[in-house]
Amino acid sequence: MYELIQTGEKSWYIKNPANVGVYDLGGGEVCLIDAGNDKEAGRKILKKVTEAGWRVSCIINTHSNADHVGGNQFIQSRTGCRVLSTDIENAIARHPELESSLLYGGYPYAELRNKFLLAKPTESTEEIESALPPGLEIIKLPGHYLDMIGIMADDGTCFLADAIFSADIITKYHIIFIYDVAKFLATLEMLERLKAKIFIPAHNEATTDIKELIAVNRAKVHEIAALICDICAAPKSFERILKEVFDHYGLTMDHNQYVLVGSTIKSYLSWLHDSGRLNIEFIDNEMLWSRVKEC
């Protein structure tokens, strides 16, 4: 863990639960792509970079989930580096309480105010469009989160954030967090055409071919959609649908899983409704979802 692995003439990544990219800007300065999940991860990342003889000039946050921005505060406080991302992801990095509020759908109760859902706030951020270091290109990767991006380096290394997940993660957890299912699928389609020498997903080993991973991710989305349609053969409330999804996959519900999986299932319900496959009814002051015959 926290091994520095070279992937191109100017690019490396630090292997950890959410891989962190390193791009050599020249003159002893580097740009990090993401920053780990908390202060301790930030400390280890900065130590690894410093031992290699580099200074952190900036951090690019691909998106503002806590496991990608949790190390921002520590690294920025120690180095004075800039933190760059898109406008909405910057806002959540500066005000991380927005993430747990978004997932829960209201003010998060005490058990949801934990480091997995609530990163330490980033002191200052900049809009990436006007501050992107030379040699790097932004790739739009919507779907997993609000305005997630990837980064293509000029040496052919492509940092893919959470656009695709490993087969092991999908097999173990089944439900990967998705904010917008339609955009997630569109991003997978775009990735099939994307050319790079090597791809670095945040939650998978670096690879030169992502087609198999794309297929696994896409198949699981359609599997879950079909499951929800089957569950909704008779009208069901959201809570009932969520329980049946957990039971089907043998998942264990806790506070974090309730909001992460629950928010994702709500996104599936929205997608299935908007695409004409689920109906919504209000009966006896209860919101019920039911399958359209053609689902």
Score class of each variant (00 low, 15 high):
172 K>A: 14
63 H>Y: 11
143 G>T: 07
97 E>C: 02
197 K>D: 12
96 P>L: 02
110 A>W: 08
45 I>D: 05
168 D>H: 08
115 K>S: 12
160 L>T: 11
78 R>W: 03
139 I>Q: 07
204 N>A: 15
130 S>N: 14
122 T>L: 01
199 F>G: 08
90 N>G: 12
235 P>I: 15
230 D>C: 15
248 H>A: 13
92 I>Y: 04
22 V>Y: 01
100 S>L: 06
294 E>M: 14
82 R>L: 10
146 L>Q: 04
251 L>N: 06
162 D>N: 07
74 F>G: 00
191 L>A: 13
193 R>K: 11
6 Q>T: 11
102 L>E: 08
253 M>L: 13
107 Y>I: 07
139 I>F: 05
284 D>Y: 10
86 T>K: 09
204 N>H: 14
107 Y>K: 11
198 I>R: 15
8 G>N: 10
153 A>V: 00
118 L>N: 14
15 K>N: 14
133 P>W: 02
162 D>W: 02
285 N>D: 15
220 K>Y: 02
267 S>P: 04
31 C>W: 03
145 Y>L: 10
121 P>L: 00
210 I>N: 01
38 D>I: 00
210 I>G: 04
291 R>E: 06
144 H>G: 09
150 G>D: 00
246 F>H: 03
43 R>M: 06
227 L>Q: 04
105 G>M: 09
291 R>N: 08
19 N>H: 14
22 V>C: 01
182 A>M: 09
281 E>K: 09
293 K>A: 15
286 E>N: 15
258 Y>F: 12
264 T>V: 05
15 K>S: 13
40 E>V: 08
144 H>K: 05
49 V>P: 02
248 H>D: 15
64 S>M: 04
32 L>S: 02
63 H>I: 01
10 K>P: 06
16 N>V: 02
179 Y>S: 04
112 L>H: 13
204 N>S: 14
248 H>L: 10
295 C>F: 02
266 K>R: 14
74 F>I: 00
220 K>H: 02
130 S>L: 12
182 A>V: 09
269 L>I: 09
211 K>F: 04
169 I>F: 07
1 M>Y: 06
268 Y>V: 04
4 L>G: 01
122 T>F: 03
145 Y>I: 08
116 F>K: 05
241 I>C: 03
251 L>P: 05
138 I>K: 12
160 L>H: 11
68 H>S: 03
204 N>R: 09
212 E>C: 05
114 N>P: 05
37 N>T: 01
185 L>Q: 14
189 E>N: 11
137 E>A: 12
117 L>M: 10
260 L>N: 07
72 N>I: 05
238 F>Q: 06
107 Y>S: 08
166 S>Y: 00
68 H>F: 00
265 I>L: 06
186 A>M: 09
198 I>F: 03
232 C>D: 11
217 N>C: 10
47 K>Q: 10
58 C>S: 15
280 I>N: 13
41 A>Y: 00
80 G>M: 07
244 E>F: 02
284 D>L: 13
269 L>E: 03
145 Y>C: 05
48 K>M: 09
151 I>M: 05
67 D>T: 09
83 V>W: 00
280 I>E: 15
130 S>M: 12
206 A>W: 08
124 S>K: 14
91 A>L: 13
184 F>W: 08
134 P>M: 09
288 L>Y: 06
238 F>G: 06
49 V>N: 04
288 L>S: 06
209 D>R: 15
99 E>A: 03
66 A>V: 01
187 T>E: 06
41 A>N: 08
215 A>E: 10
20 V>G: 00
160 L>Y: 11
274 D>H: 08
